[in-house]
Amino acid sequence: MPRLLIADDHGLYRKGLRCALEAAIPDAEVTEADGFDGALARLEDSGAFDLVLLDLNMPGLVFPDSLREVRACYPRMRFAILSASDTRADMLASLAAGANGFISKLQMDEEIVAAVEDILSGRIYVTPLMVKATVSTQAWGEAGPARPAEPVADVDYGRLTPRQRDVLPLVARGLSNKEIARELKIAEATTKIHMAALLRVLGVRNRTEAAVRAQMLLTRGDHARSEPEFKRPS
């Protein structure tokens, strides 16, 4: 029985894809996550999945670095990128970061289902448009134009995901990944992924700079002003 995880912040698309996959693969067990934080939580709580489908542009995922990091933490799982984009650069970057497939949301339902079945069977999948563009297998090893880290002169607390906001005050206290993992009751490998994403969002190069910037954010009270907007019903 194949176990699949769909991580996408667009609820209608996520639920529609789940229905399509469950109808086409009757014995499939499909789990959902509404962002990268949720995907990491499902990976930690639910054990091994046969395939993890990650939306290219969802909260918490810094492409392609987050893909590379989660792939390194779960080397035996298969990962594929879902995207409304079908550019050659995004496809090459996905494959170079360790994705087992790149699926365009613009494809027909039956094509997406076939793509998932291909990846589950052990093959690498790219959209037919990429094949028509004669992308060679040698080129798959190239990262293509890298997306530069977004310069952050003044960090907006509201840009952080809920889990990054949990990590932020612990970083400000100078805690290690192991100590943060213990505080949040999550795996150390999961903490490393959250920490790497937080460094990029903060626009810093190391933990020392992250601690300083985190202290600045918390001191000026951005978290207090932003908190009500991000509260979710329990």
Rank of each mutant, 00 (worst) to 15 (best):
A20V: 11
G38W: 06
V201Q: 05
D154T: 08
N206S: 04
L170A: 01
N206M: 04
K105L: 13
T127V: 14
L168N: 03
D90K: 07
R3Y: 01
S234D: 06
R3V: 01
D27C: 09
N177H: 00
V135D: 05
V135E: 05
D55W: 10
A133R: 15
V135C: 10
L202H: 12
P162T: 09
E179H: 01
D222V: 03
F79K: 12
V155H: 03
A149K: 03
I186A: 11
E32R: 05
G16I: 10
R78C: 01
S136T: 13
A96C: 02
F230W: 15
L4C: 13
R225G: 06
L175E: 10
V52H: 03
R42H: 01
E29M: 07
P59V: 15
L217R: 05
G47S: 13
V30N: 04
S85M: 07
A139R: 06
A189P: 08
K192F: 06
L82C: 06
H10R: 08
I112H: 00
D34C: 14
P59F: 13
S176T: 02
V204E: 01
K15I: 06
I119W: 12
I186S: 11
A28E: 09
V167N: 01
R225F: 10
P169H: 06
V152I: 08
L218Q: 02
S85K: 07
R123K: 04
P2Y: 11
L82N: 06
T134D: 04
G35H: 03
A153H: 00
A143S: 15
A20K: 12
L53P: 06
P128M: 12
F230A: 11
P151C: 07
L40I: 13
L43M: 14
H194P: 07
K192L: 08
V126F: 13
E111Y: 02
D34V: 13
G203K: 08
Q138D: 15
P145L: 03
G35W: 03
I186T: 15
N57L: 11
D166S: 04
V113N: 11
A41P: 05
I124E: 04
R165P: 07
R182F: 06
E227D: 13
R71W: 09
P148Q: 04
I180N: 00
P26N: 13
L168S: 02
I186Q: 15
